[in-house]
Simulated assay, not measured.
Amino acid sequence: MLKRIASIVVAATVAFSGLMFSTGEQAEAATGTFAYSKVNGLNIRTAPSLTSSKVVAKMDKGQRYTYLGKSGSFYKINYKGTHRYISASSTYTYLKASTSTSTTVSTSSSSKRSKLVAESKKYLGTPYRYGGTTTAGFDCSGYTGHVYKKAIGKTLPRSSRQQYSSAKKISKSSIQAGDLVFFSHSGGTIQHVGMALSKTQMINSETGGVKYASFTSGYWAPRYVGAGSYL
């Protein structure tokens, strides 16, 4: 009886969206091998073809899905319980097995983000001061630098332009709490920085002091230039 229940559970687990994964696919998935994107906007297709398939979604750099095997010049992946395909070109993708090290790195990154968010909120209402880097008053980059140093012991470059230049660039859709978002008032060089709290909201030091603001609507939306991560 127990064997029968177990077999039913296994069958239900592998039968996503009416698609039964083969024994080989189950073995690939069991090894914890993932297909990663090297670029932003990598097409996820319905079939292993450039001409006879539809694009159903896109992957950003660093995103991953469970690898289920190779089909011609495509990797087969488990995308929301369904077979989907991405390019297997080394220019766009790579494979990597899940390891305890990667889990540790992920956990560490999550912990750092939580610390940054908690630290950033301590200074809500602190006045804006041009050139300021202390709790007596912050300018935009003085604030982000102070938060990073206090929260995780990381020293950032002094100016917003330098912080943008040194950060690892990430897409808007990949922004997480603790990442930095950058702006230009004139459409030229970087002139302002804030720290993201979500994919739409940041905390920053601007006119009126340290406050919350949206970077996808209102004043900052049309001035958004890009995002960067130090995590």
Rank of each mutant, 00 (worst) to 15 (best):
K112P: 03
E119F: 12
L197F: 12
K168F: 14
V210C: 02
G125A: 12
V193M: 06
G131S: 12
T13C: 13
M195Y: 06
S49D: 12
S198K: 03
T31S: 12
Y79R: 02
K211M: 12
S100A: 13
S166H: 09
T103G: 15
T135Q: 15
G18R: 00
A97H: 15
R129Y: 15
G209V: 02
S73F: 01
L42E: 06
I8P: 05
D60F: 06
K115H: 05
G153L: 06
S217V: 08
S52H: 12
V193Y: 04
Y148G: 02
I8K: 13
K169N: 12
A57C: 09
L95M: 13
Y148H: 07
A167N: 01
Y128H: 07
A47M: 14
K115Q: 08
R158T: 03
L50P: 11
K58E: 12
N204D: 15
Y85T: 01
S49R: 08
S52N: 15
E25Q: 10
T200A: 11
Y230T: 09
K149W: 07
T134Y: 12
F74I: 01
A27I: 04
S106W: 14
K3Q: 08
G24R: 09
G194W: 07
S229P: 08
I203F: 04
A88S: 08
R158Q: 08
L50I: 13
K61R: 08
G178R: 09
G24S: 13
G153K: 03
I170C: 10
Y143P: 06
L156Y: 05
M202C: 09
D139R: 10
G125D: 05
A15R: 07
A12F: 13
S160Y: 01
V55K: 02
I44Y: 07
K61S: 12
G125L: 10
H192R: 03
A213K: 02
Y230W: 09
S89H: 06
A213H: 07
M59T: 06
T104P: 12
Y36T: 02
F34E: 13
A227D: 08
R129E: 15
A151I: 01
I86E: 05
H185V: 07
T31W: 03
V210H: 07
H83E: 00
S108K: 14
E28M: 06
P48L: 11
I77C: 09
I77F: 04
Y130I: 15
Y128V: 00
S71K: 14
S89E: 03
P157A: 11
K58Y: 13
S22F: 08
A196V: 08
G218I: 06
K38W: 00
S87N: 05
A196P: 07
I44R: 13
S90N: 07
Y85K: 00
L124H: 05
